[in-house]
Design a protein around this nucleic acid. Structure first.
Length: 815
DNA sequence: GAAGTGGATATACC
DNA sequence: ACTGGTATATCCACTTC
């Protein structure tokens, strides 16, 4: 049997003691195909140097005799081969030890505690990763496959699963031409009475696919809605949900926070009713993997929790202040949730229920649309990191960097490094912070004609240029090496390029290439590809300093920061020497005054600068700006770092660090500050802004501002009881707890109210948004509005405090 | 009991 | 525990006089 095939979901199973990959996918006609395949299972034993041959022969014979009988399995060493490989860039002799079952490799490794063996590696990758590496498969690419159809009890009855064809794979070959694939997607969302898992009843479940829009509920209402299906009770609701998933049989089942809420909830309620949540194609129950986050896996159907993916792939560029479905859908789709105030089901009447159904359906529609939106990203991530979408969508960037490395090691003939042990991680976490980026101390003021240069992929290009990695780190000083002062000593790296910098070089090159292609002819795939490489390049520096990394290298991470500091300081000097004036710099960017020079002269100078930069390091022009403002710190007269605002020649405003961009300030303060900054940058003076602020102060004093503008939102980052310092938002959270309001991952909202009696602490004046009370004029003036704008006016030598307190009312007439 | 200071906490920048 | 370090600012908690 021969056909075209695209792999989607990866799993594995044991049959007669051996491991088999079970890959679910589609053929080019949309039929569901299950392929069964196997690959050699082995680990590496790296030998000590200069072992005599007879000793190696003896060792091999000894190893070949290893047999294990554990966990109800019999595993034995089946074959041992001698190979020349690299480990951390050094040539080594290593034994490739083939064994029966991947899951027993750890135990085989334990048996290899022999004096001739230096290190044991390659037993901790996970079967799926091992399989993909071995077969060089790229997930979600089209393949031409050939194999035998499996029927009856072949491989323990695997053909009983809900697939059109099961095949034992014989050959598999990638189809090079680009070929589209449109997955079958089902989005779902549940509504419940309580937020705590399993505590309340599931009231309804919505389901959305390209052809389906449905809400299932057990709630009887007078008006029958077309898209609502009514069932008897909660038990039937869950059963019906399972039936639908089976009937639709999607490639992807997607939810929003469904790993942490919807699926665990369904599971808990199903257990209560003694129903099985057997969603798997093989009728297996949903499997939960407990880690820091629980993940829910369905055999054969790829479950995607979009929240997790959006968090790693996009949150750093997003405008949204939270990752709530509403905000995210608003930002990416320009669509919103339905307005509906959720109440306990006992407090709802007929009309409310209809709205509730609509609300529930809309959530699934948004989730479905978000899936479509992020499908190119999921696809590209999966192809680039070469891991299944299920994992890709849940892994953080450090894991993604590591996946990329592991799947590219074969190009360097490298044996994979092991995961750090628990003790190693503990040791790494205890180490002191190393010195990081350089931040220029700015002089407060309003500046005109500013230019900004940026290092492209700054840290990445430093790692590549100076070959900084675990495998290139030298133990002692060597001639002809790269060296720099870091971690309070001199560190050295060899010049012969290592596999990690080499891989990173390719990542940066690809990023450049795809960015260029994207610019020429934009589309979603190119955007996703370009973004994926950008994220990979950016995360590579952090990876080497991350305690959980296989290729952890403190020296490399510290040296990267050190070389980057050196490079930027040298560039700053050169820019100053050229006759410009540097006014600010942070990590990889430099802002300087044009000092009457033309843009052409600046470009010319940039070219010359770049010619002098080492390796692949490169500065690029970020933009030209009309004006910019830097302010003082609240304490001290120095300029504040990481806080400035710019207006470009095209009148685009860029604000960094100011309260305007901080979500833990009330909306009024943020908006007022934003307006003040805008006026000053646009007009080039403070006059209009001063009039504006005086008017705002008046309005506050006269209580003309809507209380909604005064609400402060702060995230509760741990359980209430764990707080040592009881700050206002903790009090607000306590109040919510008393009122039995849900405290989920979202922000705590409160305002500071007028109170009777002498109350000194801010937290004593905290009220929840719907608590009766009036905003505290003194607080909002002196602790929100004034702090937000006073150091902006200070740039113009205006003391707002005096003006507002009325001390210098007369000076108003001066303007 | 006021004033000063350091710690805890949240959030942003790159 | 799930990339890194640098930085600002608020408000509480505690010390000191």
């Amino acid at each position: 049997m021969k056909m075209q095939f695209i792999p989607i979901d990866y799993d594995y199973f044991d049959f007669e003691g051996r491991n088999y990959a079970k890959i679910i996918g589609r053929d080019d006609k949309g039929k569901r195909i299950c392929i069964v395949d196997s690959c050699p299972v082995y680990l590496w034993a790296i030998l000590k140097e200069n072992l005599p041959e007879e000793k190696i022969d003896k060792l091999i014979k000894k190893i070949e005799k290893i047999k294990l009988d554990i966990k109800g399995r019999q595993t034995e060493v089946e074959r041992v081969e001698m190979h020349s490989r690299n480990f951390l860039g050094k040539p080594v002799k290593a034994l490739k030890i083939f064994a029966t079952n991947y899951k027993d490799l750890h135990d085989v490794a334990d048996k290899l505690d022999m004096p001739e063996i230096e290190k044991r590696r390659g037993y901790d990758l996970g079967y799926t990763t091992h399989y993909i590496t071995e077969k060089q498969l790229i997930p979600l690419s089209w393949y031409e496959i050939e194999g035998e159809i499996i029927t009856g009890d072949g491989f323990g009855g695997i053909s009983n699963i809900d697939a059109d064809i099961c095949i034992k794979l014989e050959t598999i070959e990638k189809i090079e031409s680009e070929k589209d694939f449109t997955p079958k997607v089902l989005a779902f969302d549940i509504e419940t009475d309580e937020l705590k898992i399993g505590e309340g009843e599931i009231l309804m479940i919505s389901l959305v696919s390209d052809k389906l829009r449905k809400v299932i509920t057990w709630k009887k209402t007078n008006k029958k809605l077309e898209y609502v299906e009514y069932v008897k009770d909660e038990a039937e609701l869950i059963e019906r949900f399972v039936e639908y998933v089976k009937k639709i049989s999607p490639d992807f089942l997607t939810g929003y926070f469904s790993d942490g809420f919807d699926i665990p909830y369904l599971k808990a309620r199903a257990e209560k009713h003694n129903i099985k949540l057997n969603l798997g194609l093989d009728d297996s129950p949903v499997k939960f993997h407990r880690g820091i986050f629980t993940t829910a896996e369905i055999s054969g159907i790829c479950h995607i929790d979009l929240l997790r993916f959006i968090e790693t792939a996009y949150s750093q560029y997003m405008q949204s202040e939270t990752l709530s479905l509403n905000e995210v859908a608003n930002e990416f789709l320009n669509e919103r949730k339905k307005d509906f105030e959720i109440k306990h089901s006992s407090k709802l009447d007929g009309k409310d229920w209809e709205k509730y159904f609509e609300y529930n359906l809309q959530d699934s529609i948004l989730t479905f649309n978000l899936f479509e939106k992020f499908w190119p990203d999921l696809l590209e991530f999966s192809k680039i990191m070469q891991e299944p979408i299920f994992n890709i969508s849940r892994n953080g960037m450090s894991k993604n960097v590591e996946s990329y490395i592991l799947h590219n090691l074969h190009k360097f003939n490298e044996i994979p490094e092991k995961r750090p042990t628990y003790d190693e991680i503990g040791g790494r976490r205890k180490r002191e912070k190393y010195e990081g980026a350089f931040v220029f101390q700015p002089q407060p003021g309003l500046y005109e004609d500013i230019c900004i240069f940026d290092f492209t992929s700054s840290y990445g290009s430093v790692i590549v240029t100076y070959n900084l990695s675990k495998s290139t780190l030298l133990e002692k000083s060597e001639k002809n090496s790269y060296s720099i002062e870091a971690l309070g000593k001199k560190v050295y790296f060899e010049k012969k390029s290592g596999f990690f910098p080499e891989m990173l070089k390719e990542i940066i090159e690809k990023r450049k290439k795809y960015k260029q292609e994207l610019k020429q002819k934009p589309d979603a795939i190119k955007n996703a590809r370009s973004n994926a490489f950008k994220l990979l390049a950016n995360a590579s520096y952090g990876y080497q300093g991350f305690f959980g990394a296989r290729y952890y290298c403190e020296e490399a991470a510290a040296a990267t920061a050190a070389f980057a500091r050196k490079a930027i300081k040298e560039s700053i000097d050169k820019i100053n020497q050229e006759g410009f004036k540097v006014i600010y710099s942070d990590t990889d960017s430099i802002a300087f005054l044009m000092s009457k020079k033309t843009e052409e002269q600046t470009f010319d100078f940039l070219k010359r600068l770049n010619d002098e930069l080492p390796g692949i390091m490169e500065l690029e022009l970020e933009d030209f700006y009309k004006r910019g403002i830097w302010v003082t710190k609240r304490t001290g007269e120095f300029g504040a770092k990481k806080k400035y605002a710019l207006i470009s020649k095209g009148s685009k405003i860029k604000i960094r660090g100011f309260e305007t961009v901080r979500r833990d300030w009330c909306r009024l303060a943020r908006q007022v500050q934003n307006n003040v900054i805008k006026m000053i940058l646009q007009e080039g003076n403070e006059k209009k802004a001063l009039d504006y602020i005086i008017n705002i102060v008046k309005q506050i004093k006269e209580r003309k501002i809507d209380k909604k503008q005064m609400i402060i939102r702060t995230q509760l980052k741990k359980p209430i009881s764990e707080y040592k310092a009881i700050s206002p938002h903790v009090i607000a959270a306590r109040k919510m707890q008393e009122k039995k309001l849900p405290i989920d991952e979202s922000l705590i909202e409160y305002y500071i109210a007028e109170t009777k009696g002498k109350k000194k602490l801010v937290r004593e004046k905290v009220k929840l948004p719907d608590e009766k009370g009036e905003y505290n004029i003194e607080y909002y003036l002196n602790h929100q509005i004034l702090p937000a704008v006073e150091n902006i006016f200070q740039v113009f030598n205006i003391n707002l405090k005096d003006i507002i307190s009325g001390k210098k009312q007369t000076c108003l007439n001066d303007f």
